[in-house]
């Protein structure tokens, strides 16, 4: 399965890409929500997206709303990876349709466990 990593920080894109490819995913990356939507449109092999909240152009929350508004992406799993750690933020992201929420900072084990909840990795 292919995973799309959307983060405006090059360092964070590189960390997440490394973790995901070690787990066994093909990785494509984007620096903001709008670029993320373009990647998603042109590549129907993407089954999972890791998206940051605070992004230029289109933020992660808007990205999630856009993806969830399109039935073509019903099978795409979404994980928000964010420095936003208020309970209300997590709730808002879940209401918008994310499948899981990872609070930064995180470890590789955090990502593996979240994937296991979604049946995408062996816990």
């Amino acid at each position: 399965m292919r995973v799309l990593v959307i983060d405006d920080s090059r360092a964070m894109r590189s960390i997440l890409s490394k973790i995901m490819s070690e787990i066994g995913f093909d990785v494509v990356a984007a620096a903001h929500g709008r670029e993320g939507l373009e990647r998603l449109r042109e590549d129907d092999g993407i089954g999972l997206v890791l998206v940051d909240w605070n992004l230029p152009e289109m933020n992660g929350y808007e990205f999630v709303q856009a993806v969830r508004a399109d039935p073509a992406y019903d099978d795409v799993r979404l994980i928000m990876v964010s420095t936003e750690t208020e309970r209300e933020r997590v709730l808002k992201a879940l209401d918008a349709g994310v499948d899981e929420y990872v609070m930064k900072p995180f470890t590789r084990a955090t990502i593996v466990e979240k994937l296991a909840f979604l049946g995408l990795a062996d816990g």
Binding site: R87, V90, L91, A93, L94, V98, E100, Y101, V102, M103, F106, T107, A109, T110, E113, F117
Partner: peptide, 12 residues
């Protein structure tokens, strides 16, 4: 500790 293992819907 919360990040490890708590599914987000249970956290909220």
């Amino acid at each position: 500790e919360i990040n490890r293992g708590v599914p987000s819907h249970l956290l909220t």
